[in-house]
Amino acid sequence: MNIIVYIIKRILYAIPVFFGVSFLIFIMFNIVAGDPTIMLLGKYATAKQMADLRHYLGLDKAWYLQYFDILKSAFTFNFGHSWATKQLISEMIKSGAKVSLTLSLPSFIISSIISLIISMISAFYRGKWIDKFLVLICVIMMSISALSYILFGQWILAYKFGLFPIEGYEYGFPFFIPYIILPCIIWIILSTGSDIRFYRTIILDELYQDYVRTARAKGLSETMIFCKHILKNAMIPIITNLIIQIPFLILGFLLIENFFGIPGLGSIILDAINNSDFPVIKAITILTASVYIVFNAITDILYVILDPRINLK
């Protein structure tokens, strides 16, 4: 099969997935979720006002028309206005995603580099004390909850030692930098533990493949085998793992954003949930699902390109 045909086929596969996701979102918010009008109108809501508001929000339309509205907004990326803040949702997402990325992107890059390096060291010295020590550290890092890191960071590093601001955020480069250093450190600590373990396992899997034995039989040095053969093959699942994380970077980290007062997409989602602001929740869910589907397709395509062993059929 031609690669172009494969790409087209992969994109076509994404369409029913997208319909399925949007239908699920529709069921969740338009059918299962309760009537949001009373929350929006406040304690003095009357039945008449609630009916008026339901009509105004289009909640009294036939179900298929409501579903069509969701589909339309998903394809046009016009999600309308937030019920709570009356802002244009696309603008909210854009500004929130930008802020989230200022935190998530450096954290992702740094943590990926650190994880890769440490996992390689650990795999290279497999079974030795250095490997055991690194695995132990990873398990400890993974076992401690995010909240503990946040509270410790804010109390000790920010309040006691005054190394960082306790919380806050300033828009624009470079003013946001002091505010993201501590959250970044916590993000890195939180993600490296599991990443190191995962990458180490992948590398170790490769270590016991036939081609490694062949290379050893040919008399190649361990360093040569590790760097030239094992890493090259291990990179495919590692890259896949990295790419699949990218769509979630725009969402930020809900807990970190909330504690550090970072006005990113994570905190927008939390506010939307608290305010029963369904259009915002729907928009972010659709957007995340779409980006995820796209990146999933990209990963599959990259797989085919990077690894000729994978059959296009």
């Binding site: 109390w155 920010a158 309040y159 306790i166 919380e167 806050g168 909330n258 504690f259 007062g261």
Partner: peptide, 15 residues
């Protein structure tokens, strides 16, 4: 300042 977390709020005040 909009600080929704109680512990963060208290730290800012103590600081």
């Amino acid at each position: 300042h909009i600080v929704t977390e109680t512990s963060t709020r208290l730290l800012k005040f103590k600081n």
